[in-house]
Simulated scan of single mutants.
Amino acid sequence: MPDDALQTTEDAPIKLGELTNGLGFLIRIAQVKLFENFFEHLGEYGLKPGEFTVLWVIGLNPGLRQGTVANTLHIKPAHMTKLTGRLVERGLVSRATPADDRRAVRLSLTPEGQKFVDSKKDAFLNHNFDEKEALSPEEAEQLISLLRKFTGLNACP
């Protein structure tokens, strides 16, 4: 995009200049756009994107330590504690503290949590396809591939 790229608003065109060449800026704007789209289409489920992500990861890895989930998903420990607390309050996640390591907190989906993930996974996962509507299937695959490479998630199953 040229240096004099414009963003149209209700007030007037806004010059963004070289910002539109910045990876961090573009990823942040893309994230905001995706979150807005998420809440517009999936807000009825009462979860934020990160909360469903945590439920998904716990469902695939029952008994995983809370700190490991936080580290893997780059969630700050204090935020992870609050997020987990909300999911426990909703009855979707259970916490267990092993007798041999009182500092560890292991997370699992409750039966209600597993049922929720199973019944909502298509809506949440298919939502990812809606995110790509501005791209051709080939462009979407290329973007996903580049983001996996950039984030170091190439080797993740």
Rank of each mutant, 00 (worst) to 15 (best):
L34D: 15
Y45N: 06
K33E: 14
F39Y: 11
N37D: 06
L19H: 07
K33D: 04
P49T: 02
G46K: 02
G43P: 00
T20F: 04
P49S: 03
G17S: 01
E51L: 09
L34W: 09
V32I: 13
N21S: 12
G24K: 08
E18N: 14
G43T: 09
G17V: 09
A30W: 03
L47G: 08
A30R: 11
G24I: 12
L26K: 06
N21G: 10
L34K: 07
F52G: 10
A30D: 14
K33W: 08
G43W: 07
L47D: 01
K48C: 12
T20D: 02
I27S: 13
Q31H: 10
R28Q: 10
F35G: 08
V32M: 07
E18M: 10
E51F: 15
G22D: 13
F25S: 03
Y45V: 08
F38W: 15
K48A: 15
K33S: 11
L47R: 04
R28P: 00
Y45M: 02
I27K: 06
E51C: 05
F35M: 03
L19V: 05
G46M: 06
N21Y: 13
H41T: 13
F25D: 07
L26D: 00
V32F: 15
E51T: 06
L23Y: 04
G24L: 12
E44H: 13
G43N: 07
